[in-house]
């Protein structure tokens, strides 16, 4: 019997938009530095203010062989209007990073900055995959159930804001893209795909949802389980939930709001009464466990799907660990050739 050959992963370069995040450039640099230590096959191309990047790198343990820097003088702030900001600042870090990815200097882009600017920069520099009319912004949400070989507690929701008015065609495309993405990232060969509606019956919802339901039901390569309601999102009934950008965004913001309110209530309870504090202390290991399982830092980021290049959008509040994980997600998507999988999925 021959010796087992361990296949070395192909080198991949990920462009990181270093600027415009809530925690500042140093946090992104630290994430990329961590990646350079953890993942020998991933090279980080850091795009942003060179002096800030170099100062942060000099103080951080990293492997200099796996990091390079592209200076970009400007950046788009979180509170800026994307279109206006990019018009005013053509050399903003996210635009430069997207251009470098389009030119092949890197294979994917990771940004924790202004989401709209990221999407717009990609739209300007990347091409839509043939068969895709509009791109979709995805996000992940922690659920009660796990999925795939990785026992991933996160489900994927798309679109959450890129395409406000989606047609039935768009919804079908989103379902194919989301399914292919979940298959790669969660190592889930047959992810359960559902349409978000106001009832589980096929005829429920606006005409575009009803039409998409009918078409998805006939697609054998998609594990379509029908419609789900809002209540099913945190339950994890589906692995991929498909909706238009308007509904998805409202839904996402509501989920975030509920989460923040629960945390605030727990803090209030902790301060208000010794008995409640004792109760929370008794539950602390369980709470920590839930926190670990649902920690979005471990997921890193979510993709913009539909372009021929990869863009992983990390949360604006991402710390180094989340940034490093976003880089790993991007590298995994590149290695598994998501673009080709989507193209093939759309042709079926």
């Amino acid at each position: 019997m021959g010796a087992m050959v361990v296949k070395q992963p192909q080198p991949v370069t990920i462009a990181f938009d270093v600027m415009g995040t809530d925690h500042g450039p140093a946090e992104v640099v630290r994430g990329a530095a961590q990646l350079s230590l953890d993942s020998p096959h991933i090279h980080a191309l850091l795009v942003g203010d060179r002096t800030l990047i170099d100062n942060a790198l000099a103080e951080t343990k990293h492997n200099g062989e796996r990091i390079s820097v592209q200076h970009a003088a400007d950046f788009v702030g979180m509170d800026e209007k994307p279109g206006e900001a990019l018009a005013r600042k053509p050399n903003a870090s996210v635009a430069v990073a997207a251009r470098l990815v389009a030119e092949g200097e890197a294979q994917a882009l990771v940004s924790a900055g202004n989401t709209g600017a990221g999407v717009l920069a990609c739209a300007r520099h990347f091409q839509l995959i043939p068969g895709v009319r509009r791109a979709a912004l995805a996000t992940v949400y922690p659920t009660r159930s796990v999925r795939g070989a990785k026992e991933d507690p996160f489900s994927l929701i798309l679109d959450v804001g890129a395409t406000v008015e989606a047609t039935a065609d768009d919804l079908v495309t989103f379902a194919v893209m989301g399914s292919q993405y979940a298959r790669i990232i969660s190592r889930n060969e047959r992810p359960k795909v559902a349409l978000l509606s106001n009832g589980v019956e096929p005829q429920k919802g606006p005409p575009r949802v009803v039409e998409a339901h009918a078409r998805l039901s006939e697609m054998k390569d998609i594990n379509f389980i029908g419609n789900v309601e809002g209540i099913d999102i945190p339950k994890g009934t589906a692995d991929v939930i498909v909706t238009d950008g308007f509904t998805g965004n409202v839904c996402l913001k509501m989920l975030e709001g509920v989460h923040e309110t629960v945390v605030e209530l727990a803090q209030y309870a902790y301060k208000e009464s010794l008995r409640w504090r004792a109760g929370l202390a008794m539950l602390s290991s369980g709470i920590q466990r839930i926190k670990d399982i649902t920690d979005w830092n471990q997921y890193g980021g979510a993709p913009i799907l539909g372009f021929d290049r990869i863009f992983i959008k990390a949360h604006g509040r991402s710390k180094a660990r989340a940034i490093a994980n976003a880089g790993k997600v991007a590298a995994k998507v590149v290695a598994n050739n998501l673009g080709s999988s989507i193209r093939e999925g759309l042709q079926k």
Binding site: P11, H43, D54, L57, G64, E65, R66, I67, S68, V69
Partner: peptide, 17 residues
Amino acid sequence: GHNIITLSNSFQDLLRR
């Protein structure tokens, strides 16, 4: 196992310093 990327990154690392 060094390659164009690791060598050129090494070069740039020194320039940046």
